[in-house]
Design a protein around this nucleic acid. Structure first.
Lengths: 237, 237
DNA sequence: GTGCCGTGGATCCTATAGGAAACACGGCCA
DNA sequence: TGGCCGTGTTTCCTATAGGATCCACGGCAC
């Protein structure tokens, strides 16, 4: 029963669908699954040593997050990468939600919260930023943690749900694939500026700092996107 | 493609999970399923004459929309109704997203779009607003259609996803249960004001009109909520 | 009378089997 | 040579079966 998968730890005897969900998510991240790749239900089930039922349930949940798409009777595929337009739209959406979160979080800031943000920034500083998945995973994790902490501290679970629905971190992570973090120093500085505003209890400044950070992220993402495009063109040449 | 043909035998043979999804959604709406009610997988499957597998997949998708909650090994239950605090949070979230949508939609407005909005408002006027599900279902459908049309016309699919993630229409619908629409005339007037601004191509006015409408919705919802609370108290007395 | 425990039923969770549709490939005809 | 069609395989989709767990109820000891 529990054979076939090296590393064991698979048979938790409860909620296999959850384990499968995390496993597919991990594969989306580390590049084992690229954009457009089909995700065979039976095949994935065989690989993980489980039956198709939990795989189906996990994919149903993933589909609602727009990370995979389901064709009528042709199975699931990895959602395509963001186009230039979509990238700008995503940044507009973040620009709408995240500064709002920063402003609200400022009113609920406490010591533990600020401490956690500080740690996230420290982790950003310590993280490597090479071109490989294992390199920048730590960086990405700390970045996501920073933004999500603020979204949680805002205290409005509907806005938090909206933030989650963007899936911004996932998309940005996939954009990093093969590129690595480009300009970590600027990003870290912007994060620090947000934290400083929160420490001072200056809600307006926190909002503005967050907005400025997102704009910076957008500029850098556009730059990376163009570089990636040029790389692709030069490779194909 | 072949939409709108009831009784077609072809439907039975494709994506039962989708049919089950709609059926459960309908039951959530019309009060057959109330807050806190357990949703038995096997039982639902027997009632609908299908196997548990599609039911499981439908519930997995519903769970990601926060309309049902899943206890570890104890099955699914209908999500609890909104508390007063949560209602205010929901309205804050709508206040963040929907005026933004109205402003963007103003830039993309075309004749078909404005026509569809006009029709939605007409449907609002013609709809009954009694206390029973069948009475106000038409009203609710038109209201939801109006807001979603604007969200779609805004043209940013991430913000659209955020709007969907709120599930605002579903929650508000469930609040109506047993109450009916309270002050339809004000709501219709506010809708008309939004449409007028969009017709003029006045983006700022559209944004403000939408914000004013949401505020109106909030006030009325609070009023209804208090009334419902009083009714509950007097009934329990 | 109260608290604990064992049994029965219902439910969840996973695995397996089988029918149906879609894609790939090779053969046939113009 | 190019287009069309039939066959085989893969995959999806649903149904059914069985093991494991949790809740409810009744009996028994204190």
């Amino acid at each position: 029963m529990e054979t076939g998968v090296p590393g064991g730890a698979w048979v938790q005897r409860s909620i296999l669908a959850d384990q499968v969900y995390k496993e597919i998510l991990a594969r989306l991240m580390d590049g084992k699954l690229k954009s457009g790749d089909p995700i065979s239900i039976d095949g994935t089930a065989r690989e993980l040593g489980v039956s198709p039922t939990p795989v189906r349930e996990a994919l149903a949940r993933l589909e609602s997050t727009n990370m995979v798409v389901r064709a009528a009777l042709r199975g699931y595929r990895v959602a395509p990468l963001l186009t230039h337009e979509e990238l700008l739209d995503l940044m507009d959406a973040r620009l709408l939600i995240e500064p709002y979160n920063a402003e609200l979080a400022c009113g609920h800031a406490d010591a533990a919260f600020l401490e956690a943000l500080e740690r996230a920034i420290d982790d950003l500083r310590d993280a490597p930023n090479g071109p490989h998945f294992s390199d920048y995973r730590t960086y990405w994790e700390a970045d996501e943690r920073f933004h999500r902490l603020i979204a949680e501290q805002a205290g409005n679970k509907f806005v938090l749900g909206a933030y989650d629905s963007l899936g911004g971190h996932v998309h940005r992570f996939r954009l990093f694939s093969g590129l690595g973090v480009q300009d970590a120093r600027s990003a870290i500085e912007e994060h620090a500026r947000i934290l400083a505003a929160l420490r001072r209890g200056d809600a307006a400044a926190a909002r503005i700092a967050m907005a400025g950070h997102i704009c910076g992220v957008r500029e850098r993402a556009i730059h990376e996107h163009e570089n990636a495009g040029e790389d692709a063109r030069s490779e194909s040449a």
